[in-house]
Amino acid sequence: MAKITYKHPNGTDTVVDVPSPNTVMRGAKINNIDGIEAQCGGSAQCGTCHVYVDEANTLPLPPMHESEDDVLYGTACPRRPNSRLSCQLPVTDEIDGLVVHLPEAQS
């Protein structure tokens, strides 16, 4: 379980408790948080669950695999150093308090 904050482009926040096992993407979907599409269902190939991890983040996130890195070449909003695919971020107790920013568009 982890508390996750999804920050919307309009400045509002949605804060939810997401049980494990889940991903940060799935946490958004099950809470119907607008701004995460995840069309491929979480297989790191569509780039529609793009998030920007908060720049102040110190929580341990898994390293990026090559396929995630490749997909981030074509996200609808520009890639930044803190870009991740939220389907590749498992929800664990260790990321309790994670803050992610949703991009303006996913597709």
């Binding site: 190939q45 396929s67 890195d69 490749d70 981030l72 070449y73 074509g74 996200t75 609808a76």
Partner: peptide
């Protein structure tokens, strides 16, 4: 086996 190509072409088409 070239996901970056795929993503970039989607952007070019958009």
């Amino acid at each position: 086996g070239r996901p970056a190509d795929h993503m970039i072409v989607r952007r070019l088409l958009a």
